[in-house]
């Protein structure tokens, strides 16, 4: 089973890369863009067959390794 996770910088945490991307988009004439936040996307293949168990396991992984909860939020899709 494949579980997908998105990790993003928490609201209020400076994201210099997102800022640089936003400025570049603005300079490319995408003038509507007022913020970009850059995150990470993971696809985790697991041997577990029960989706609930698998997602619970991935939540544990997020807390222990995939995200730094001081600066990042995670979302299991």
């Amino acid at each position: 089973m494949k579980i997908k996770v998105i990790v993003t910088p928490k609201k209020g945490v400076l994201d210099p890369q997102g800022k640089a991307i936003q400025q570049t988009l603005n300079s490319m004439n995408f003038i509507d863009v007022n913020e970009v936040r850059q995150g990470k996307y993971f696809e985790i293949n697991t041997n577990l067959e029960d989706e609930k168990d698998a997602k619970k396991n991935v939540e544990d992984m997020c807390k222990k390794l995939l995200a730094n909860l001081v600066i990042e939020d995670f979302e299991i899709l």
């Binding site: 945490v13 400076l14 210099p16 890369q17 640089a20 730094n68 001081v70 600066i71």
Partner: peptide
């Protein structure tokens, strides 16, 4: 405690 982010000016 804390975190170390990318340098402000990249």
């Amino acid at each position: 405690t804390g975190a170390l982010l990318r340098n402000k000016y990249l």
